[in-house]
Structures are given as structure tokens and as C-alpha cells.
Amino acid sequence: MSGSVIPTARRLLASRLFLTLCLAATTIAILLLGALLVSIAIEGLGSLSWRFLDSFASRKAAQAGIKAPLLGSVWVCAICALIAVPMGIGTAIYLEEFAKRSRIKRLIQLNVSNLSGVPSIVYGILALAAFVRFFGMGSGDEPWTLGNPESFWYLQCPLGPSVLAGGFTLALVILPIMIIASQEALRAVPQSLRQGALALGSTRWQVVRLVTLPAAMPTIMTGAILAMSRAIGEAAPLLVIGGFLLVFQTPTNLMSDFTVLPLQIFNWAGRPQEDFHKLAAAAIIVQLVVLVAFNSIAIVIRQKLQRPLQS
């Protein structure tokens, strides 16, 4: 009736074999990453200087810098974060804490899940129609404007290929990721805490504001870090909406022309001259530093939020 006994030695061997496989996979990943970093460092470190950070693009490699894309990235990502993070958290709170089980909720949920898998270039096409051209409304005519192009609060509609349009575009790209990450975080908050707060006479909003959201915030921030890391590295959707490859000014208002680091890297890496490849490598190093800085800030925020949770 019962099966034959598997010898312990064989089971131990299988266990060791599996461990070896895992180690091998990790080693290969680290080696690849290391090789990439080292080759970029060798190629790019020589071009890295204060002048490189503080110069605009140029046809001469020796004079070219990344002032415009660096600040462009900062502007676009800041706008993106300001839009996508609160909207993502808000949507997640609605879906998890308020929406009753209904067909509409299921439909929204399904769409959010599917949207997170849509290639980012598709969002670029949508953004081009919606934000940049405003569905062709008033095309041919002068755009509707508020203020003059020199003022810092200048706005126009359609937005054109502006910093604001870029921020909106990236917000579209990361919104589904942000929503799903926030939903997971809210779902991880034990139901007993919500029940406890309700039993004390909390309204549903008080439960969210005082218990659920504070408990979920560290995990939501982790999701925001990942989402923003994605946004900062996006080139394709911004290329579609008409992000510029050569910009000779830094953004002064929301309607300014812009370029971002990934676009600049794309531009330089595609040129035949060897010198520009070195510049591309240097820009990649800057991009990595920005990314690490970004994540560190988010980690610090997370630690601050997490402290009262630990005993």
C-alpha cells in the first residue's frame, strides 16, 4: 500500500542541488549587473565633470552637457509624482475601503490590472492626442493662454509638448502601478484594526484616515518608489509626445519645452561618433545617481512613517 521510502541521502542531495542552482542564478545576475556598471563607469567617468552637468547640448562633444535633460527630468518627475501618487492612493482607497462589491468595481479593477501591462508607448499616443493636441480642438487657431510665456504661471491649452504634458504622460504610465501597489498595501492591513476602529464609533473616513492609511503608508511608499523609478527611466512615451532631443534652456514654467535624461542618452547613444557614446555613458551614471538619491529619500520617508509601528 504505502510507497517505498526515499533515502535521506537522496533528499539531501536534491536540497543541495537546489541551493546550488539558486546561488548560480544570483551570481549570474550580480556578475551581469557588475559588468554593466563597470563598463559604463570605464566609458563614462572620464566625461563626468561639473561642466558636463552645467552645460547645454552642443554639436561638439567636448562642450556638450546635460543641464537641460537633468532639470527636465526633475520637473517632469516631480509633476508626475504630484499627480500619480495622490491619485493612485485615492483610487486604491475608494476601491478597497468604500466601493461595494459590484459589477462596476470589478470592471474598474480588471481595467486597472490590464492597464498596468500596457506598453508605455501606447500611453504616449494617448497623451499626444489628449494633452498635447487636446483631441484637435482649436487646432489651427491660437491656443487658449493664461499669462504670458515669460511668467512662471503661464498656461496654455492645448498643452503642446511641454513639461506639464510630459508629467501628465508619465503619470498615466505609472498610475495603474501606483493603484495596484496601494491596493495591496491597504489589503495587508488586518481587518481586526478596521473592526476595532469601527466599534469605537469611527466613521468610515475616520477609519481610513486614522488607522488604515497610516498602517498601509510604509508599503504604499515602497510602491511609489518602484513606480517613480519606472517613470524616471521612461523615454518612449515622451518621445511620442514630442519631447525634444536638443533643448537649450531649463524649464521656467509648466509650458516650457523639455527633454529628459533617457531621451538625451537615447540621442547620444545613437550617434556614430565615439565621443558621444562616452557622453551617453556619463549621462547614464548621472541617471543612476538620481535614481539612487530618489530611492534613498523615499526610504527615509518610509522609515519615518514606520517608526511608530514598531515596539
Binding site: P190, S192, L193, Q195, G196, A197, L198, A199, L200, G201, V211, P214, A215, P308, L309
Partner: peptide
């Protein structure tokens, strides 16, 4: 619920 308090099976202090 202000007039009727509740204590649950598993202690559920807030963090």
C-alpha cells in the same frame, strides 16, 4: 457604537 463598546476575540490594539 459610542454607547455600546466592543472587545474582540483577539486583542487588536492599533499600531
Amino acid at each position: 457604537r459610542r454607547r455600546v463598546g466592543m472587545v474582540f476575540q483577539k486583542p487588536n490594539p492599533f499600531p
